[in-house]
């Protein structure tokens, strides 16, 4: 058994061999954005989920026009193969890939194992920032098929259809929203969306080298919790980053045809007036 869409995954060796390929752009996307400055794959450029990919005012991503600007500046054409990698088991790399897909970029891949595996293999990291000739990138209309909004989530919950909560068990149960003295970011209520099953995102990756688990293991993980390919699935976390890794796994590694990421996630739901909540403490 192999991954359903293996084209969306490359290994470190492939990236090493394509570092200078003009049709390939390697992008680092980290949870900790300073990592890139400390050392990155030679030739790689950086996007930061917070300063590059968010709208400067509203709670939303950058606009289509802004996305075009970012992609053009990174020297990406509509045909470039864009390979993402990052820290924390590629969690933010998957987020960036999801956003590139949202604006219609077709050729995207994740470097399996991310920074961790690259470092473990003692491959070179450099500080030198490479720049590429600017392009004129044209984004497509945002692909709402991969993004869920709150009304759709409410409908999904009421219909008893699959929702995957990928946060840690304590966030799911509702035990964790605030630490003593210090409110955590964002939500005034704890718990989860009614009907959501808890499958923490990290269960999809091997802790030792940050690679994805085998197709058999992944299938057992999600199908074992009733998340099957025959229905539309919505994944969420706290702000939609961790769940983009789960989205990637379900959509490309397991080939589920209809998977959405709810980027509003708990920081929207846990603040939404009149939204139903389940707790399990």
């Amino acid at each position: 058994m192999s991954y359903v869409h293996p084209d969306y995954l490359v290994d470190t060796e492939w990236v090493a061999a394509h570092q200078e390929d003009p049709n390939v752009r390697i992008i680092e996307s980290d949870e900790d954005p300073l990592l890139y400055a400390i050392g990155h794959i030679p030739g790689a450029v950086q996007v930061d989920w917070f300063s590059t990919l968010q709208h400067p005012l509203r709670r939303d991503f950058l606009t289509k026009e802004k996305f075009e600007e970012v992609a053009s500046k990174l020297g990406i054409t509509n045909d470039t193969t864009v390979v993402f990698y990052g820290d924390k088991s590629n969690w933010f790399a998957c987020y960036a890939l999801w956003l590139f897909q949202y604006y219609g970029h077709k050729n995207v891949k994740i470097m399996n194992g991310g920074r961790l595996k690259w470092e473990q293999e003692e491959r070179p990291l450099v500080k030198e920032v490479q720049s590429y000739p600017a392009t004129t990138y044209r984004a497509r209309k945002a692909d709402k098929n991969i993004r869920a909004f709150r009304d759709q989530v409410l409908k999904q919950s009421k219909a008893g259809k699959p929702l995957v909560d990928v946060r840690s068990p304590k966030e799911y149960s509702g035990e964790l929203i605030s630490m003593p003295n210090y409110p955590q970011e964002g939500a005034t209520r704890g718990g989860h969306i009614p009907g959501a099953v808890s499958i923490p995102w990290a269960q999809a990756v091997n802790e030792a080298d940050a690679t994805f688990k085998t197709p058999e293991e992944l299938r057992a993980l999600y199908e074992g919790k009733g998340i099957t390919p025959d229905e539309e699935v919505i994944a969420y976390c706290r702000i939609g980053e961790r769940s983009s890794l789960t989205w990637f796994v379900l959509k490309y590694l397991l080939g589920y045809p209809n998977v959405k990421n709810y980027d509003g996630s708990w920081t929207e739901w846990g603040n939404l007036v009149d939204a139903p909540i389940e707790k399990s403490i």
Binding site: D32, P33, L34, L35, A37, I38, D87, R115
Partner: peptide, 8 residues
């Protein structure tokens, strides 16, 4: 060291 921002 994998968390330079927090270290900083």
């Amino acid at each position: 060291p994998q968390s330079p921002t927090v270290r900083g």
